[in-house]
Design a protein around this nucleic acid. Structure first.
Lengths: 253, 253
DNA sequence: TGCTAGCGAATGTTCAACATTTTCACAATC
DNA sequence: GATTGTGAAAATGTTGAACATTCGCTAGCA
């Protein structure tokens, strides 16, 4: 059997190039990216192709095209950070802006306990399978001595995404994208698993078991516990979270 | 002074046309939309312009382009319903799918009390101004006998969006888009304000006052009260909400 | 039945020209 | 001197035509 075409080498993606350049800070909000013709000549592709790619960045809210002037990087607040494409770029090219990362993490601290609670109420058998597979992946990747950080974080993400999906609500499910950059950031910057991997894994296990047992309040607290390490690893006190403190009245915290 | 150019008449937006056609159900998931050349000739614009517009639908997750075959409408689950552009289309062209509308409303019932609570903790003076202006608009539009339904719902949306923004968190702020279709749908289908406008307005007022007074728990309950009418107007029991029941242990419900 | 080659239709890419918008410099005017 | 008008320059927006590539389908063959 011949190799699958190994020399396909699709045309370079200007969107990808510019996304990397913008998210890594080489172009800041207010800056103008190179003009169409320059990009076209630099990458040896046609101007139409460049325009097609720029359209993608416009749809993501990242750049703004000013007729007759150029393409300007928009302010962070305008970026569609809920767009899966944008979160993927954030995940891939890391911290575009520490403030945004902090806000995303704060959001995550707010909602994930509630998501876990809901998942405990509604998860189907298939959802549990997905959660368990992700968990097993985390465990496996941690045990093997040459534990791949990258792979571990992938399973970590899959674990949390599976819980979001287990809410059986399309909005929550799609929101799960938002946590990918948050988790990746954590892994990059000396993650909490590094400090005490077994304890972290155990907290994840308890969360999974609470969902499987259909114990919403246990799931809520287990998720809080999972996130606690996450929070102070990035210097965010759980108290900064929006909803956390409201749960003080819960029994047996 | 001459009129500002009244005859500009920008080129027809194929994206807009197709969005209307898809969201109103004329093209269902799995269907193929007309091919590029047909659209180009039908609207008397160039094929490049058509392709640019199709790109927008692709970025929104609504269609999928199959090289050499056509552009297929994707399944609802794939639509980026968190994309502001998509929610705007949903708002404008109404119920693409009752199921999605229900899920969005369920989500709203889940999160809005918490958002209100947070807003009560963090709202700045400017946030309060925005909330109040929206509220005044609602009140004004209700009092005037020729109360414009459309305008009232616009102020209603602005009111709730302002509360989301008052969380001072970028993720929550951007999420506020999701409630626009939910509110609009409500208005279209014999809204609750129609049944008892004054009571509804009063509930909104109490929510606003709780936020102004920095009373998070009051804000939480006030938001629940505002949403209660909304929920049963569309036949969704508050119990269906993810987080609602969890608040039973709150004091003085 | 199952595999392969090839055809046709549609999308993807390229090229070149022209239209429109915006800014800026400079001159004309009050 | 300040304002206003004019035109050139530079960038994005649009057009049209041609060619490349991809994918589904079908006819033909073993």
């Amino acid at each position: 059997m011949p190799h699958p075409p190994v020399s396909v080498s699709k045309r370079p993606s200007i969107a990808e190039y510019l996304a990397e350049a913008i998210f890594s800070g080489r172009y800041q909000p207010g800056d103008f990216v190179p003009k169409e013709v320059d990009l076209a000549t630099q990458f040896s592709i046609n101007r139409s192709a460049v325009r097609s790619d720029l359209r993608q960045l416009v749809d993501a809210g990242i750049i703004e095209r000013i007729s007759g002037h150029g393409s300007k990087v928009r302010a962070f607040e305008s970026w569609n950070i809920l767009d899966p494409q944008v979160t993927e770029w954030m995940t891939r090219y890391a911290a575009p802006n520490p403030d945004i990362q902090r806000e995303i993490l704060a959001f995550r601290l707010d909602v994930e306990p509630y998501v876990a609670m809901t998942a405990a109420r509604r998860a189907t058998a298939r959802d549990l399978v997905a959660i368990e597979e992700a968990f097993d992946g985390m465990a496996r990747e941690m045990q093997s001595q040459l534990g791949n950080k990258r792979l571990h974080s992938d399973y970590d993400i899959a674990f949390h995404v599976a819980i979001f999906k287990a809410t059986r609500n399309i909005v929550w499910s799609q929101l799960s994208h938002i946590l990918r950059p948050a988790i990746s950031l954590l892994i990059e910057s000396s993650n909490e698993s590094a400090t005490d991997p077994e304890a972290s894994l155990e907290r994840h296990r308890q969360l999974m078991e609470a969902i499987r047992a259909r114990a919403p309040e246990d799931a809520f607290r287990a998720a809080q516990a999972v996130l606690a390490g996450t929070a102070d690893a990035l210097g965010i006190r759980p108290g900064d979270a929006i909803l956390g403190s409201a749960w003080a009245p819960l029994p047996a915290q």
